[in-house]
């Protein structure tokens, strides 16, 4: 078994116009910048992007938005300082936005990866973000029914990987990467270091079974 791919370009080659793509990261930490650059160079259009933030500045998700390649953004927090390209597209009505509370976003992705049909969460009960959703009261507490969220692709950033696709992470760059890796039909991991030897199984955070391809990108932002 060998999931290694030589270049970022080959890694993103299967991503076509109209694809839904989960992208790991929180702020600029744990973002697969190499894969995003390759996706921008490929000019796949009309993408649905699922990521916690909507980028900042003229790089990464911000550049993907500036280039007009995204038609829908699913996230929890698109208003970080410097998220100018998202704000412009949103104000101009050029992009659809689905806001999901951050824990519900993570758990909907987890549910998809875990084969669940949804879950009941107290998050958002009685608020605008629960409008139109099924609710239930259990032991006097209100819950909102949330559906699983999957995607065609997941772009993952990890610290180290091996040819089996096993991944380990660094610091707070873990964030959404492990859960997103479980929930896409095709998960692609960019790793800072591709190990010639198997990772220590005790240190593997994302088991390789969730990863389809792994590519080395040595830059740490």
């Amino acid at each position: 078994m060998d999931k290694r791919i030589a270049t970022l370009e080959e890694a993103v080659a299967p991503i076509q116009d109209g694809a839904s793509v989960m992208i790991g990261g929180f702020g600029n930490s744990g973002v697969p910048f190499g894969l995003i650059d390759a996706l921008i160079a490929k000019r796949a259009r009309n993408l649905t992007i699922i990521s916690n933030n909507a980028g900042a500045g003229d790089f990464g998700l911000g550049l993907l938005l500036r280039e007009g390649l995204v038609s829908k953004f699913i996230c929890s927090y698109p208003r970080s300082r410097g998220s100018v390209w998202f704000e412009k597209a949103y104000a101009a009505g050029e992009i659809a936005l689905e806001i999901i509370p951050q824990g519900t976003l993570a758990e909907r992705i987890r549910a998809a990866g875990a084969g669940l049909g949804g879950f009941l969460t107290p998050t958002g009960f009685g608020t605008r973000l629960a409008e139109g959703k099924e609710t239930r009261v259990i032991d006097g507490k209100g819950y909102v029914f949330e559906l699983p969220l999957s995607a065609d692709f997941a772009l993952i950033r990890a610290e180290r990987g091996d040819r089996w696709g096993n991944l380990s992470y660094h610091g707070t760059a873990r964030n959404f990467n492990p859960v997103m890796a479980t929930a896409a039909r095709h998960s692609i991991a960019e790793v800072r270091e591709l190990s010639e030897t198997p990772l220590d199984p005790e240190r593997v955070v994302s088991p390789g079974i969730f990863i389809d391809h792994v590519v080395e990108y040595g830059v740490r932002p």
């Binding site: 929890s76 806001i99 519900t104 998050t123």
Partner: peptide, 21 residues
Amino acid sequence: WATQDEKFPPAVGGAMDLVVG
């Protein structure tokens, strides 16, 4: 998490999860 100003995109982050838990 949101004002009534429609010019800006709403942004909830983790606030709703914190207050219920």
